[in-house]
Design a protein around this nucleic acid. Structure first.
Lengths: 301, 301
DNA sequence: TCACGGATGAAAGATATTTTCGGTTCGGTG
DNA sequence: CACCGAACCGAAAATATCTTTCATCCGTGA
């Protein structure tokens, strides 16, 4: 046979349409119909069986197989796999382009995509902007602390609790305070060697600044986790950990991205401390996991 | 026009590895072997027939088909097509970034980078795996609810509180419960038209399942947010929202990524509800922002 | 130890793909 | 105009592949 059949299985599939055009002249009428269908709608054809494609093009299975052969595949099965790949590439090629704000009439799928994208963005920004020296210093302070108090209100209060839960798990003594009065009352107890952490996005939440100030004045090592590195809270902070602030919109208040950002910082603190106290932290983590096992119903299998 | 660009043939293609991770715990040993082979080498497996893959993994055809089913495909044939698509994407697109686990002696900068990367991964996986139909249904239920109760314990308890805070801000009546007894006591009060949401990564936390069951039996619409779509909690859930499970390591327990995942789902719920009740939600959001203004010290430049 | 329930694979059954083969069309030819 | 041959085409048989069923096996808990 003089025509040189080039093996394209495993080579870029993007040339399929071109190949169809090249080979079209040497095809019989029915084969052209099949080839055309395949070139026009790879994804759709990938979903069809030989019989289906034969019916769609008004031809027979044999013709479909012959066409597949002509296009360089061992049979229809392999053409179909290649089509699936092509379809996937086309799909992924289309950039989601989710740069716009979330709109009131966005379908739910868009909401998911946009939120996920924005939170990813927030994480990247936070990681990029985080001062590792400050972080390291904060970790150092936590590692040697006699006790640690964490202040946060509203959404930041949950982050404070999250940090506290984690620190407790590795054997540190930590408390979260969201009641301003109790926070101050406790802050008075702190002294050198203790750590106080304030979490506030705006950096100007009085109820959180106040206990930090008291802790600061009593000699505790103070840390601020805030999105505004020039805000009042930093005034009383030995170490400032900056969270990133992303675009906010009406349907996505700042609290949402700041929470993501704060949690990343908190996780970094936790892992940092766990590293430095690995000898005690690892068994403590294992133990707390163990202790909870019986609270879970037997796993179905 | 369908907005689900990730979907081909009804199954998300981009998240296969994530899906394997999510479902792995509920798989039998042999099925895990098959799933692992598929996740490790999509391209290679796409070239194999059922029999071939069965031999490769040392199992039987039946097991391969069962695994394909579990992964959400009608049969092996469709899994194979999806694999071909995945392979094409991987080959053409970016090489999948491989990160190592966080090690005890990683410098702090690496810790930040790895954590941020893994959380981003978790977000992407969650978004890809989230069933928008279920999400939409849950949003619909929340929108018309007389009242909403949210159950969560430990880290999930914080997520429950986060959701509650948000819903309250847009004028819904919502409560978070982390005390199992109080939760059940309150669940008894629920009736048709009310909504109960259980948040549990393992899906088998008895203290969270119990109130959901009670709510379910009293006619409330029930929602489960869990990383195990086949776990006991789903038994009493009208709508199941699946969070993704990422690789966990000693220094990065599962709780960390599950929290990220859960929060994304919660945010989606919130935004969804806010969209549908925009007329009342927007002013409510503005009002709550307004009310807090005086609690912040005047902002310095 | 035994009984039980789920996990597993061998083989039967169903479907899809490939091959075979004979009918049909079409252009050329006597 | 009748005939011939070659290529085209599709129905159906043959084969490969996938799916389902069912008996066995294995681990588990009493």
């Amino acid at each position: 046979m003089t025509r040189d059949v080039k093996e394209i299985f495993g080579s870029p599939v993007g040339s399929l349409a071109a190949k169809v055009r090249t080979l079209a002249p040497s095809m019989t009428r029915s084969m052209q119909r099949v080839a055309e269908a395949v070139a026009n709608d790879p994804a759709g054809c990938a979903a069809l069986t030989v019989t289906g494609l034969a019916e769609l093009t008004g031809t027979s299975e044999a013709t479909v197989v012959r066409t597949a052969r002509l296009l360089g595949y061992p049979g229809y099965r392999d053409l179909r796999l290649a089509l699936a790949g092509l379809a996937a590439q086309q799909q992924s090629g289309r950039a989601p382009a989710i740069t716009t704000d979330i709109a009131v009439d966005d379908p739910i799928a868009d909401v998911v995509a946009k939120l996920a994208y924005e939170e990813q963005q927030t994480l990247a920004d936070t990681a990029a902007g985080l001062d590792t020296a400050q972080l390291g210093a904060a970790v150092g302070a936590l590692t040697g602390a006699r006790r640690t108090d964490v202040y946060g209100i509203g959404a930041s209060g949950l982050v404070a609790q999250d940090l506290t839960q984690k620190l407790l798990r590795i054997g540190l003594i930590a408390h979260a305070h969201s009641d301003p009065h109790l926070a101050v009352t406790n802050a008075v107890q702190l002294r050198s060697g203790d750590v106080a952490i304030a979490i506030t996005h705006s950096g100007s939440t009085g109820d959180v600044i106040e206990p930090l100030r008291v802790a600061f004045e009593h000699g505790a090592t103070t840390v601020a986790i805030t999105g505004r590195p020039d805000s009042p809270v930093t005034q009383y902070a030995d170490h400032v950990l900056t969270t990133s602030t992303s675009r906010e919109s009406e349907l996505r208040p700042a609290a949402m991205s700041s929470r993501t950002s704060q949690l990343l910082v908190v996780d970094c603190l936790f892992v940092g401390v766990a590293q430095r106290t690995y000898e005690t932290a690892a068994p403590a983590l294992a133990a707390s996991y163990e202790a909870l096992a019986h609270r879970h119903r037997t796993n179905p299998r």
